[in-house]
Simulated scan of single mutants.
Amino acid sequence: MQYQAYPFVLNEAETHYKFESIGKRGVIEKAISFSKLSIDIYNLALLDFDPVTQNYIDDSVTDNGDMPEIMATVIAVILNYLNEHPARRIVLTGNSKSRNRLYQIAIGKVWEVVQEDLQILGFNGVEWLTFEPNGSFESFLIARKFLIS
Rank of each mutant, 00 (worst) to 15 (best):
V114C: 00
Q2S: 14
Y103M: 02
L129N: 08
F131S: 05
N100L: 01
E112H: 12
P7H: 03
L129Y: 05
G125S: 04
P51L: 00
A72C: 01
L79N: 11
P86M: 05
Q119Y: 08
I105F: 04
A72K: 00
T53A: 06
Y42Q: 14
A13E: 11
K24S: 07
V52D: 12
P68H: 00
S96I: 04
Y6M: 06
F123S: 01
Q4G: 05
G122I: 00
V52G: 09
R101L: 12
D58T: 11
F8L: 07
E116D: 13
E127T: 07
R89K: 15
D58N: 15
L118P: 01
M67F: 14
N43P: 08
H85K: 14
S21A: 04
M71I: 09
S139T: 05
A72G: 01
L47M: 14
L79A: 09
D59Q: 14
A87E: 15
G135N: 03
Y6V: 05
N134A: 13
H16D: 09
V110K: 11
A31W: 12
F34Q: 08
I120D: 09
S35W: 00
H85Y: 14
K97M: 09
F140E: 01
H16L: 15
Y6C: 08
I105T: 08
Y6L: 07
K30T: 08
F140S: 00
I105R: 04
F131D: 04
L92K: 07
G94V: 01
H85C: 08
S38P: 03
Q119V: 14
Y17T: 05
I57C: 09
E12R: 08
T62F: 02
A13C: 02
Q2H: 15
S38E: 06
E138A: 14
I142Q: 04
Y17F: 14
N55Y: 13
L79S: 06
I75E: 04
I32M: 00
F140M: 03
E84M: 13
I107G: 03
F19N: 06
K145L: 03
V9I: 15
Y17C: 04
V27H: 15
E29M: 14
G23I: 10
V114Q: 00
I70N: 09
P7L: 06
L44C: 11
